[in-house]
Nucleic acid binder design. Structure first.
Lengths: 268, 268
DNA sequence: CGCATTTGCTAACGGTGTTCACCAAAGCAT
DNA sequence: ATGCTTTGGTGAACACCGTTAGCAAATGCG
């Protein structure tokens, strides 16, 4: 008898062999999904601090302690939905990537990066909890699901960059400026990212890091509204950064509207 | 009789003409300073959500409602200390800037940017509330003190950039790529920053924006620990970004240790 | 059916922001 | 010195919050 051991710490046990999940497991998954869905809504409506177990329970017609059968605490719930959101943004970027011809690497990159910004500005609260400071998390909370989901999200861009790299479209920068310390860190980066190429040059990783930092910076600045007192619309600056970023990558920039400047675009 | 109108909404009134602040005003300022100081310590020790009026009052030997004589609420207190922190980081950067020869513009810029990162990584909680998402603020709270302090902070860099610009050290980028929308936003930027030069070219503002975005990005990424699962030390990447940033600015990069590569450095 | 597991509840503890009524002390003017 | 006004602070109260412990009902399995 395992009295006192909460359900969320036991194995799924997934019984029934090939008959799929049992009825119990299905309804359990359903209520967990409802919890996460409501939490998500509260997040976008009232910010991170506006997500509370009691409010969720109230809305579900339950009481707060009941939720502890599904989630070990509020912080863990935040971790859960944060991981979900990483999956979501990764899907959004992938979908945008897949919506353009697979051979047009330039357009794929352009589209993917714009999709990232687009998702960010239309999901500000989510972006803030994912890419902002780990305020409520990090201490005493297991964040491995988040970094795992974050890793998968990163892979979306890595593969694209990998493809660009294999096309040898741009000259790698001067590697003599890379200090041994930087090389060590970049190597660690490449290793944990799991690139397809066996031995990727550190210069390439440096370029990738630099691009990611710039993209992250401009999007954060827009979502966190740190230039609002000085700029009304941040898209022009984003496009400008995009342009200058891609220039160093040998990728031909195209403005947002024009889908095809090389092939004739279908008029719609 | 103004019953019910809290003190913090009345004018300072600053009586006594030239005799300075009255005794009452002095002790009032002292307790307000104590409130902010304790709040600040709680912030760095327990994060933004760890700042509570009750805890502060407890530590001061008072009760929470008493604090409402000094501060209209917890959010406003956060705004207050955030503004203070902007002043602090601006002072830190200014001090670093002033610690090197005034004629050596290159070294001044290098030193200032490094000072910014240095302050950020040694004041993570403060940086997060200043430059992270405006989670607890923004809604229903008057943030003008923060943006005002932020503006003064920005000026620290603007003046340096202005000096660099007047030296005409680097060729401005091709302005033909600047769309009208971008130009409008950049103009607004320049206007609210109050540059000394009467008519600064938009190309220069674009360069400044780009540099600020990159600096912001790399420092945020380090402080928010979003690459921790892949890089142990972020300084090499920061230096690398610094190097590539300054290369476009015509500023000679020098590694952190070496103070003088042009003049003979004093061996210490 | 019987029994073990799962699920949800109530009660409770300690914490939070905030408002209100009230009171005492300080300051000021006559 | 006396009286009045302003100021600083308290205690009680309301409405929230996360979390734990113990218990009762529902559920599913043999």
């Amino acid at each position: 008898m395992r009295r006192g051991v909460p359900r969320h710490m036991t194995k799924p046990q997934s019984g029934r062999g090939a008959t799929g999940p049992s009825r119990r497991e299905r309804v359990r998954e359903a209520t967990l999904a409802e919890i996460k869905q409501i939490a998500r809504r509260h997040l976008v409506e009232h910010g991170t601090s506006g997500v509370s177990l009691r409010a969720i329970a109230r809305e579900m017609g339950m009481t707060a302690p009941g939720l502890y059968r599904y989630v070990p605490g509020i912080d863990a719930l935040l971790v859960l939905i944060t991981a979900d959101m990483f999956q979501e943004v990764a899907d959004a970027v992938s979908a945008a990537d897949a919506s353009v011809p697979a051979e047009d690497t330039d357009l794929r990159i352009l589209t993917s990066l714009r999709a990232f910004r687009s998702w960010a500005v239309s999901h500000r609260a989510e972006f803030a909890t994912m890419f902002g400071p780990r305020a409520r998390l990090s201490s005493e909370t297991d964040v491995t699901p988040v970094v795992e989901a974050g890793r998968r999200f990163g892979a979306t861009f890595y593969t694209l960059f990998d493809r660009l790299l294999s096309e040898e479209r741009f000259p790698l920068p001067d590697g003599s400026r890379i200090t041994p310390e930087l090389e060590r860190e970049l190597r660690a980066f490449a290793d944990t990212c799991g690139f397809s190429a066996p031995h990727i040059p550190v210069e390439a990783i440096m370029v990738l890091s630099s691009c990611w930092v710039r993209l992250y910076g401009v999007v954060c600045m827009e979502v966190f509204e740190h230039l609002d007192f000085v700029m009304r619309d941040m898209e022009p600056l984003f496009e400008s950064e995009l342009q200058s970023m891609l220039a160093g990558l040998g990728v031909r920039y195209r403005p947002p509207g024009a889908e095809g400047s090389t092939a004739m675009g279908m008029p719609d």
